Amino acid sequence: MTLREQFQLPIEALYNTSKIPADFHSHLDYEIYYFRSGKCTYLLGDKIYELAPGDLILMNGMTLHYPKVDPRFEYCRNIVHFSSSFALELFRPPYSTVGILTPFEELRNVPIPLEPGDRERLEPLLDRLCLLYERRDSLSHDLFLSGFSELLLLIKEISNKPYAKHTFPVSAKQANVQRMISYVESHFTEDITLEDLARDLHLNKFYMVKLFKETTGITLFHYLYQRRINQAKVLFAMDPEHSVTAIAYEVGFKHGSHFSKTFKKYTGVSPESFRKRVQSNN
């Protein structure tokens, strides 16, 4: 049992060395992702990044993300998920820091390559949080909350440094894949075909299919369906009373049965079950 389970904490802190990453996914929680070692191409929203050890990513919920990992190297990272409302509640007076979550809103979805001095401060803090997270006593609970507050303050400090605004170069191939993803982002609610993409992006459709799979590890239509399902989850969260059929059409599915089957494939639950879960949490 972890602190999250023992005290119903809306925070989890993990150190993961799994070589098999999760599928394309999103979640309502905010996320702190810190890349420690390995070889990883990270798809984040409509962008693609080649990560290097020491890269920090801040995500503020419901952003599709997926790490394509080279299995020849051990993939090590720290991940902290937390409820934004809980974090804001922690930083009420006597704390005087304003905008503790501003870095997640202004620097979201862009890796920050940390300088050596900031890595030396961040890594022991993340290690300590992961260690405390596995305990179940009250003292560890309080130390964990203290460490989590310190983590958010450190991120706030780092985000104010000039190097945090670093921009990542992309190769010509990555630029073409980003164009495909941006096209899907603009048209995912429509009836998209490979011919449409090839025509509008001035690319050969067979080249597109091969390039997307090589770069991302998934097919273009896998991404399209995942993007539609992600939008459906957002709509259910915004309005749980919305009918499943209405949301299916709104996100680009022509048939409710196809939507239900695809939703369960990518989330593990039916859209009706997901909607009921959202309703019970409101």
Rank of each mutant, 00 (worst) to 15 (best):
L101R: 02
M238V: 05
N281E: 14
T167I: 15
Q178C: 12
L28C: 04
C130R: 01
A87C: 09
C130S: 08
T189L: 07
R277Y: 12
P124H: 11
M62K: 13
L154M: 05
A172L: 13
S96F: 11
P169C: 06
L125H: 04
F274E: 10
L129Y: 05
T267M: 03
R228Y: 11
Y30I: 01
M208I: 15
Y225S: 10
S18W: 01
I247M: 04
D118L: 02
L132Y: 08
H255P: 00
E157R: 13
E241D: 15
K165L: 15
L107K: 14
K261D: 12
K173I: 02
Q231G: 00
M1R: 04
S149Q: 14
V184Y: 07
E195Q: 10
I57V: 15
H202A: 14
Q279L: 14
Y34H: 08
L122I: 04
V177Q: 10
S186D: 15
T215D: 00
K156W: 14
Q174Y: 00
D191N: 14
L58P: 02
K276P: 00
L64N: 01
Y34N: 07
L125S: 02
A232W: 03
Y15M: 07
N160T: 13
L152Y: 01
R121W: 02
F236Y: 11
T219P: 00
G256T: 09
F82N: 01
A164Y: 05
R36Y: 04
T215Y: 00
R135Y: 10
P240W: 08
K233D: 03
F24W: 05
P10F: 07
L129A: 09
L224Y: 07
